[in-house]
């Protein structure tokens, strides 16, 4: 979240700093810090995993794998290469994509299109309000893309498809999809003022 600024304000120090601190302490084997890291990020991680994997039971397995991998690898997290949340979501996305692709390779995918939305916490925090602001910014940014760019980005990122598959799905020439994915992401990056 703190990876990109909110409007013209300074990125929220609370979330980003806390995550970096929790990750650093987790890397020294502090399980309490990791529990706090889990609490702060589980909804983001699981939300992304469910969006890609769809099946609730499989998503839970993947989310568990993701946090185990974060635990194992946080000793190697390099703040110079990106924010903690970006790093964690990169791991989550890769695991989710691996799961849907291996599932596809093994057998026909059982898709549960209706994902039961877990009860959401009712005591929404300030952080939650900030998240909603982020959501609005993301939606506005997505609206600036061309239809093909937006379709390519969403099919790749949330659909877990390769760029070749994206080309087939969108009916665009092979090789064009990767360009659209990149163009779309670059435009989003500039609109959202994302820094790595």
């Amino acid at each position: 979240m703190a990876a990109f600024g909110r409007g013209d304000s300074v990125p929220s120090p609370a979330v980003g700093t806390d995550l970096a601190d929790l990750l650093a302490r987790s890397a020294r084997g502090n399980e309490q810090a990791f529990a706090a890291l889990y609490d702060a990020t589980a909804a983001r991680v699981h939300g992304l995993v469910v969006r890609v994997v769809r099946d609730p039971a499989q998503s839970e397995e993947v989310t568990q794998e993701v946090f185990l991998e974060i635990w194992r690898q946080c000793t190697r997290f390099d703040p110079a290469k990106g924010s903690p949340l970006s790093w964690m979501l990169t791991i989550a996305h890769r695991r989710a994509v691996d799961r849907v692709r291996s599932a596809e390779a093994a057998r026909a995918r059982e898709i549960t299109w209706e994902v039961k939305s877990a009860e959401r916490d009712h005591d929404r925090t300030l952080e939650e309000v900030e998240v909603r602001l982020d959501q609005q910014r993301v939606r506005r940014a997505l609206a600036t893309l061309t239809e093909t760019q937006r379709g390519a980005v969403e099919l790749a990122y949330f659909g877990g498809h390769t760029h070749t598959e994206v080309a087939a799905l969108l009916g665009i020439p092979l090789g064009t999809a990767k360009t659209r994915i990149r163009d779309g992401l670059i435009r989003l990056r500039d609109t959202l003022e994302v820094t790595a």
Binding site: M1, A3, F4, A42, A43, R44, H46, G47, L48, V50, R51, G82, S83, L85, S86, L89, T90, H93, V115, S117, A118, E119, R120, D121, V131, D134, Q135, V138, R139, L142, V153, Y157, F158, L185, L188, R189, L192, V194, T195, A196
Partner: peptide, 13 residues
């Protein structure tokens, strides 16, 4: 990081 920002829309506890 940009893709991670897209996931702000998909929170699920």
């Amino acid at each position: 990081a940009t893709a991670a920002a897209l996931a702000a829309d998909t929170e699920l506890t």
